[in-house]
Design a protein around this nucleic acid. Structure first.
Length: 680
DNA sequence: CTTTCAGACCTTTTT
DNA sequence: GGTCTGAAAG
């Protein structure tokens, strides 16, 4: 984000335009359909674009940016808020390819990364130090846990919620502009009796963060909102600099984010929200479909444009998708149609076991490749990250290269988090969460000693010196001295982040050897990989906030593979597949109980699972395979799952062809064939 | 006080 | 299959 050099020269393009017709590099009218075109050329005022799956939403956004810039709007006056930073980058790249590099000056990113930039700059108005540390989810949990144990709450007879739950509750309260009591009432009624203690923990957690210069994900948004609300002069300044705001995936924003948009747009109301109410799938993080539905009442002059022509999928795929969403309790605002009449009917595959399912997918992918479909045009989608474990083994066995999106991240592994904790105490010596982690790693030190050392450390400014002064003998004394030397070593002025990382890793390796003897080589490689990633950074603060906001999610193997020429197959959670498309898509584990998952008993949750299935199905352009294993024992529920997902119930057979896998001779590779199935 | 080990418990999706 | 807790050993 480049908010340092905004020349506020806004020429009056509208008037010039009427005086003499402009020449554009692009024939927008020809490149876009009438609705898309209208969205692309409407720049002033508020605009709601209801864009169905595959209706060219991204294209519209890209062309709109290009058009604005071509009309002479200063690119840095445009703010493009997207769901991931990557999608912002891609859009700006595409716009750049259309009309030129000045599109790079457009401000683009996630709400969180935007908030980070603004708060680094203006946070001091709220008493936030500009070197604040961003806590990721597990850091927040650690902090809450620390507070909880100080209260001695975990020793009560009745079961007190675990740290994940606590953080979830606190986070939801922030994102929904609600409070702990309401969240408990709505979503955790069984914990209502703990209200007082949870509120107390929340309060202490806040104070704790404030004292140490820590901000969690929610604080980034909350504090940005506070800044805009409490400091009108700054709000005014930002608002007049960022004169054109676009928000992508609006159906997955929460009330806090909507409030931020409202405040930012206060002085000009040039806001374009784009989204699809039928694809709202992030309520677990406080998103509400009400945002998109109520946009017109927030901005009463909003113009509404619907994009209903689907350019992605064939008719049979669209028929199935429409059928899935039509069974929803509430109806949605659009009706999708396509001109791609011809196509292959989606197939529903019943596999005897998980491994059969994996083998089928593997085989079929190889067939598709032989038929000329490149691997990077194929994806396997699933409800939960772990659903692909067996398939991953199968793919490796067959030598099919893949990337996995969603789920566990490289950055969340213990050894990387440990390394990061060391870097954080260097960047922000007040960061108690990280100190705690670092000190616990020392041999012979547990929670009690750690607490003592921490109190000692917080008593003065020079931590390395304080460490040396700490009275400790023997092994513990040596350990503490070693840590002190590391701190001295890395606080030499003008050291590059990568050099600091290198020092930390050298310091950390013996610890790693002690604590993770078993899979040391892999972890060591991860650390090397991590060091490489850090080489391009010039500031440690920047490095750390990037790691919190946009963590690289490749593990070592993936990175090596990316460099291969051949495309790679994509494995992805459906959540991470949002906005993407492939020639051929497999949806695996479409078993009732897994998808929809049995935890989601409430109506709303259930409906969201349905939308998830809809999102998954609409990713496919030509081929769609839905597979499910039968007779699977589910450990979580202790139930035997044997029925295909209920979202596929009552789908006419003419829309979805059932197939059963048959085990045949081993020499026949394609051991499956179609046949009638009557069991359901 | 720390470490270790056995048993219980729960298991989603992400910035 | 992994994390968390509690109890017992070092």
């Amino acid at each position: 984000m480049n908010d340092e050099s905004h020349p506020s020269t806004f020429t009056l393009e509208r008037e010039t335009e009427t005086q003499r017709p402009r020449r554009f590099l692009i024939d927008y009218e020809k490149e876009l359909n009438p609705s898309q075109y209208e969205a692309a050329i409407t720049h002033e005022g508020s605009l709601l674009v209801l864009a169905g799956a595959g209706s060219g939403k991204t294209r519209t956004l890209v062309y709109r940016v290009a058009r604005m810039v071509e009309e002479g709007i200063d690119p840095s006056a445009i703010l493009l808020l997207t769901f991931t930073r990557r999608s912002a980058e891609e859009m700006l790249e595409r716009a750049g390819a259309l009309i030129g590099a000045q599109c790079e000056k457009v401000n683009g990113g996630t709400f969180h990364s935007f908030a980070n930039t603004v708060l680094r700059r203006y946070g001091s108005y709220l008493g936030i130090p500009n070197s604040f540390t961003i806590l990721d989810r597990s850091d927040s949990e650690d902090a809450v846990n620390l507070i909880r144990s100080r209260f001695g709450l975990e020793k009560k007879e009745r079961r007190f919620p675990r740290k994940q739950t606590l953080v979830e509750i606190i986070s939801l309260a922030a994102n929904k502009l609600s409070n702990v009591a309401e969240v408990l009432d709505e979503q955790f009624p069984h914990l209502f009796s703990e209200l007082e203690d949870i509120v107390r923990i929340d309060q202490h957690y806040r104070a704790y963060k404030k004292e140490r210069g820590l901000l969690d994900y929610d604080d980034l948004l909350t504090r940005l909102r506070d800044l805009l609300q409490e400091h009108p002069a700054i709000a005014q300044r930002l608002s007049s600099t960022l004169r054109y705001i676009m928000v992508d995936e609006y159906q997955d924003t929460n009330r806090l984010q909507a409030e931020i948009v409202r405040l930012l747009a206060h002085s000009h109301e040039n806001v374009m929200a784009v989204g699809d109410d039928a694809q709202s799938i992030y309520s677990f993080r406080g998103a509400t479909v009400r945002n998109i539905l109520e946009f017109p009442s927030l901005f009463p002059t909003a113009k509404i444009i619907k994009l209903e022509e689907n350019y992605r999928s064939t008719q049979p795929i669209l028929d199935l998708s429409n059928q899935i969403i039509q069974q929803a309790k509430e109806s949605y605002t659009k009706n999708l149609f396509t001109r791609r009449e011809k196509g292959i009917k989606p197939i529903l595959v019943e596999a005897e076991s998980e491994n059969y399912q994996s083998r089928f997918v593997g085989q079929r992918i190889l067939q598709l490749r032989e038929e000329g479909v490149p691997l990077d045009e194929i994806a396997v989608l699933f409800r939960s990250s772990f659903h692909s474990f067996d398939l991953e083994l199968e793919l490796s066995r067959r030598g099919i290269p893949f990337v996995k999106r969603g789920g566990f991240k490289f950055i969340e592994t213990t050894h990387i988090k440990d390394t990061l904790a060391h870097l954080r105490i260097i960047a922000n010596p007040q960061d108690a969460v990280s100190w705690h982690r670092v000190i616990l790693l020392l041999e012979g030190i547990g929670p009690k000693s750690s607490e003592k050392i921490m109190t000692h450390l917080m008593s003065g400014p020079n931590q390395a010196q304080l460490l040396r002064d700490y009275p400790a003998r023997g092994v513990i004394g040596d350990e503490i001295k070693r840590l002190a030397s590391l701190l001295d070593e890395v606080t030499v002025p003008n050291l590059k982040p990568a050099e600091q990382v290198d020092a930390v890793v050298r310091y950390y390796l013996p610890i790693l050897k002690r604590t993770h003897r078993d899979d040391l080589p892999k972890r060591q490689k991860d650390l090397e990989h991590f060091t490489t990633i850090t080489e391009r950074y010039r500031s440690l603060d920047r490095l750390l906030s990037d790691m919190a906001l946009e963590p690289p999610n490749d593990s070592v193997g993936d990175v090596l593979a990316v460099e291969r020429e051949e495309g790679m197959l994509t494995l992805s959670t459906i959540h991470s597949a949002k906005g993407l498309e492939w020639h051929s898509v497999f949806i695996i584990w479409a078993v009732d109980g897994r998808f929809p998952s049995l935890y989601n008993k409430k109506d709303e949750e259930f409906e969201e699972e349905r939308r998830l299935m809809y999102v998954a199905a609409t990713r496919a352009k030509e081929n769609l395979f839905i597979t499910y294993p039968i007779n699977i024992f589910d450990r979580a529920t202790g139930m035997v799952l044997s029925k295909p997902s209920r979202f596929l119930d009552s789908i006419p057979r003419k829309m979805l062809e059932p197939v059963i896998l048959m085990e045949e001779d081993d020499r026949r590779e394609d051991a499956w064939r179609s046949r009638r199935q009557r069991r359901w």
